[in-house]
């Protein structure tokens, strides 16, 4: 329960940041998405079920807070969280770079699902070159912020686990 509350607060703070500063500060037109890094971290640390659930919940929160059609971010982040979860136990978490590479790859997956689903329902008509440019840039940004963010979240997750294991 403590972990859910902590991650919920982190997700809310990330969302507030995304709809304010990060909506204006978009280097070369691409978005930095700390919420997605949070989802990827949850998947890497806790496995595919938790990754998928965290992705769906965070994506839905993102849809609500940003005003895009409900379900679009939910679907994209669900795939990213599930994908990250499949790496649990396979990715050497002590390596500083691997979470960054995972965040890069899963941002590409998330954006591909997001744009693909948006295109299928007839709302997103993005030129392929522009979609690719924005996706790769976002993936680079997310990969960069994932390197310190993942290590920090991992320490936080460990502390929360110790807190919940403590005998009452």
């Amino acid at each position: 329960m403590t972990r859910v509350v902590a991650y919920g607060l982190l997700a809310t703070a990330s969302l507030a940041l995304e709809v304010t500063w990060l909506a204006v500060f978009r280097p070369w037109g691409a978005v930095i998405d700390p919420l997605l890094v949070l989802v990827v971290s949850a998947g890497l640390l806790r496995g595919p079920e938790v990754g998928a659930a965290a992705g769906a919940a965070a994506g839905w929160m993102q849809d609500v807070a940003t005003g895009v059609p409900l379900g679009l971010g939910m679907l994209g982040n669900l795939c990213a969280g599930f994908g990250a979860g499949l790496g649990e136990g396979r990715i050497y978490l002590e390596d500083a770079w691997l979470p960054g590479i995972a965040a890069f790859a899963l941002t590409v997956v998330r954006n591909a699902v997001w744009i693909g689903a948006g295109h299928l329902v007839g709302l997103v008509d993005a030129p392929v070159a522009e979609a690719l440019r924005v996706t790769l840039l976002s993936a680079c940004y997310n990969g960069c912020i994932a390197i310190p963010m993942f290590q920090w979240l991992r320490r936080l997750d460990g502390r929360l686990e110790r807190l919940s294991d403590r005998p009452r």
Binding site: A16, E18, V19, T20, L22, A23, V24, R26, G29, V31, A65, T66, G67, V68, P69, I115, G118, L123, V124, D125, A126, V134
Partner: peptide, 14 residues
């Protein structure tokens, strides 16, 4: 206006 949609293909503000 206190918030904006950061996505590239939709436009809403808070």
């Amino acid at each position: 206006v206190i918030g904006r949609d950061p996505s590239d293909w939709f436009s809403t503000v808070l």
